[in-house]
Simulated scan of single mutants.
Amino acid sequence: MSDSGIQLIVGLGNPGAQYAGTRHNAGYFLVDRVAERSGAELRPEAKFYGLMGRVNHPEGDLRLLKPTTFMNHSGRSVAAVCRYFDIEPSRVLIAYDELDLPVGTVKLKQGGGHAGHNGMRDSIAALGSADFWRLRIGIGHPGSKEQVIGYVLSHPSRADTEAIEDAINDAESCVPEMLAGEYQRVMNRLHSRP
């Protein structure tokens, strides 16, 4: 693994059957896909407030995390893992749902604000840094601010589900490059998706 590659992938979401498959859990979808493809098992870890897994890649070990603190307190889980394993924020990738991107779009970037996303707001505060990588998974916008909460906590249509799954599959296929610190290559690939 390069000395700038990703060591931890965090997927933001809400735990519980009532939230499974909702738009707000797009980050969970990515971690589930990485675990599934790599054969990693996600297990409850009380000290990390979430489900943790480990992937042995040729490029190096990768840890996977799904906080189970509920979205608004995701940072507690992210910070606990980073402290315990001594992982710098710049080597963390947080995947989450993005209202401001069209459904099925996926964008990689480093740093920035929280753009009103409570999981990101809490993660930035808990880490004391915004210098981590973000994988923004487009879920589209319902059209008005008043509809946002109901929209993100509802299930996407079949067509939207397929578009989001395609985006997640493409992002998952870029994990080796992210482990190697080849972020520009990943951005070129993901940002040029049709």
Rank of each mutant, 00 (worst) to 15 (best):
R158E: 14
V10C: 08
T105N: 11
H57E: 13
S77L: 10
G50V: 09
G140F: 01
A80M: 13
D160G: 04
P58Q: 14
F132A: 03
P156K: 05
G13L: 10
P89D: 06
D100C: 07
R185Y: 08
F70M: 14
D166A: 15
I87G: 10
N14A: 02
A125Y: 08
R185A: 14
G11I: 04
C82S: 12
P194S: 14
P102N: 13
E98M: 07
S4L: 10
V34T: 03
L93D: 05
D160N: 14
M120C: 07
R136G: 01
D32C: 01
A130M: 05
M178L: 15
L65T: 07
A40D: 03
L190Y: 02
H155A: 10
G104F: 00
Y84G: 09
S74I: 05
R193G: 08
G5R: 11
P176C: 03
M178R: 02
G16M: 06
G143D: 05
L127Y: 09
E36C: 02
H141S: 05
D86S: 15
E182L: 11
Y28I: 01
G21K: 11
L93Y: 00
T69P: 00
V92A: 06
L8I: 09
I9H: 00
A80L: 08
P102L: 00
V78F: 11
L8P: 07
D3C: 04
L65C: 03
R121T: 04
A115S: 14
A130H: 13
C174T: 12
P194G: 14
T68C: 00
S74N: 11
N72L: 02
Y183L: 13
G111Y: 09
D160C: 06
G104Q: 00
L190M: 11
Y96S: 01
S144F: 01
D97T: 07
G75M: 06
G21Y: 12
R193V: 13
V78N: 12
V175L: 07
I137K: 02
P156Y: 09
S4P: 03
S74P: 08
V186C: 11
G50Y: 05
K107F: 01
H191F: 06
P142F: 09
L179H: 07
G113L: 10
D122E: 12
R189K: 15
Y49L: 15
K47T: 04
Q147H: 04
I124S: 12
M187P: 02
K109V: 02
